[in-house]
Write a protein that binds this DNA or RNA. Structure first.
Lengths: 193, 193
DNA sequence: CATTTTAAGAGACGTGTCGTCTCTTGTCGC
DNA sequence: GCGACAAGAGACGACACGTCTCTTAAAATG
């Protein structure tokens, strides 16, 4: 807090705040994260935080968005439906373990509109993947109910959020091979008997 | 707070506390629920609360458990797999709308061990239902992977927790008719081609 | 029935965080 | 070089936390 002459601004200051936020999150978790703690660690005043974000939740969400971009900018295209979907789940898992379930629940409790956005994005990503699979002939159609399209990601998200154990590596393949792909194939056989 | 001679104890006092808790939850929501608020509304002291529960989350969980019992004590048995599963989802929906998503997220953020318990119970319920369906010949086997057994309830829970819209009445039937039953039948045809 | 034990009612206490406010003073745009 | 802007710094009242003390009903004991 010693105003040692040099005074940061703009991007430089915000980068310092983000670094402080991640450090605080790692050290005390979301539940005990405080604006004062972040400000102190970033060597700045609370006013600087409140000028930019209205509360904890918005600060954290901005940090999450800045940290790893949207999956929509990098839709997997590996050549097979199975590995595309697994890539999506892997991306989800890495993002989730980076931030931890307590942060997710905390943010969702305080800002209920965030996750629906993420789900809309995920729906678009999976639609693209399914479309390509249909073009390759892996599945007969990509015209599926919303709930079926996002089944894999929804189930995986459910597992990430509601299991406090760290998610097992086999979870993604179990969901894809045991549920998602079989369901898509079952629809195939029913629609073309 | 006026100590008007009469002094409540035991069950009577706890009933008053629970009533106060529900009223506070309805009025200010979980995020702004405070021990002081509950105590004041129940016309008692904070010490009385802290003597029984260590924090907000434990108090709320006790209230939830007391309010509507476990579904394990009342497993649906309607005669068909479809309506049994729908009955389970309906029970879940009623419980969920009673308390609201903010309460659920808040509790899960503070006490991460609660929901896994509920999931274990649900697994047992669905196993029983599937077993009966298998005995009736509706499905060839009830010996399914855990993830498949609880697929319907997991998806429904996902929807309840991550959608901030009130859950649509059609959600349960869409999940059961569009995903759960087709998957069980797909397994059927694969295991007995 | 008298006595002891338990816990409810009441509220004071120190602590921490909230979000707002004020003040001085670097830093940037013009 | 000057004026506007915002960073550094910290005081402020409000509130909830969780702990504590004290008095005194109400139950348990014998």
């Amino acid at each position: 807090m010693a105003d040692t002459g040099r005074r940061r601004r703009g991007a430089e200051l915000e980068a310092a705040i983000m670094a402080a936020l991640w450090a605080e999150l790692a050290e005390v978790g979301y539940a005990r994260l405080t604006m004062e703690g972040v400000a102190a660690r970033a060597d700045t005043g609370k006013q600087v935080l409140y000028r930019r974000w209205r509360n904890r939740a918005e600060l954290v969400i901005d940090a999450l968005r800045a940290e790893n971009g949207s999956i929509a900018d990098n839709i997997p295209d590996t050549g097979t439906l199975r590995s595309d979907v697994l890539a999506v789940l892997d991306w989800t898992a890495r993002r989730a373990t980076r931030i931890g379930p307590d942060v997710m629940h905390g943010v969702m409790a305080e800002l209920p509109d965030v996750e629906p956005d993420a789900m809309t994005i995920m729906h678009g990503v999976l639609t693209t993947i399914l479309k390509r699979a249909a073009d390759r002939g892996e599945i007969p159609t990509a015209d599926l109910p919303d709930r079926v399209v996002t089944l894999a990601s929804d189930l995986f998200r459910h597992e990430l959020l509601l299991t406090n154990r760290p998610v097992e590596p086999s979870a993604a393949t179990e969901i894809v091979d045991g549920i998602y792909l079989p369901l898509l194939l079952a629809r195939t056989t029913r629609q073309a008997p």
